[in-house]
Design a protein around this nucleic acid. Sequence first.
DNA 1: AAAGAGATGGTCT
DNA 2: GACCATCTCTTTT
Length: 175
Amino acid sequence: MVGADLLGKVLMVGHGDGAVSGRITETEAYTSDDAASHSFNGRTARNAVMFGRPGHLYVYLSYGIHRCANVVTGTDGDGQAVLIRSVDPLSGLDEIRRRRAGRNDGELTNGPGKLCAGLGIDLADSGIDLADPASSVRIMDDGTPAPDEPIVGPRIGITKSVDTPWRFRAPPRQL
DNA sequence: AAAGAGATGGTCT
DNA sequence: GACCATCTCTTTT
C-alpha cells in the first residue's frame, strides 16, 4: 500500500453532533528502510504502533508543539506509515473554525500540525483502530475515488532521504 | 511577497 | 544536550 491510496478518503473524528471530518488531499509515505522515518532505527517506545497492525493511528509530537497523524500501513512488525499532510474540511466546519480561531478558511487544515489541531487529534488517540466504527478517529470510504494521477513529489520538512519522491497530493479541486 | 527566526518538549545519544 | 516528518509571527524586499 502506498500513500496515494489514502487520497480522497475521509478522516473523521468524534461521533454525533460533535463530529468533524475532512477529505485527505496530501500524504507522505515512510518505511523502515528510509532514513527519514521514525522507524528507521528500530522499534522504540515512541514508534511502537508503527510496527503494529496496519490501519491503526500513529500520532507523535512534532517540534514539541504540534501533533502529526499517520496511518500505519505495513504488516505487523514492519514499521511503515503514511503521514496525513493535508485535509479539506468536510463537516463540522464551525467546530474546526473555533479550534483554529483567527485563521482563514484556507489555512484551517492544510498542514500536518494544523489538521490535528483543527480536527482535534491528540497523542492519546495514538494506537486506535481507524477501521473500527466505535473509534474516536477513523478513516472512511465514502465512494470518492483516489485521483487517477496524483501529484508526486519530494517530501517536506525532512533532512534525510530528501530525494525520495513519496509525497502524494490530490490535484486541485474543481468547484 | 518572501525570507528568517523563535517557540517548545519528548525522545534518543 | 542535540535533534527534529511544524507553525506563526516579524522583518525585509
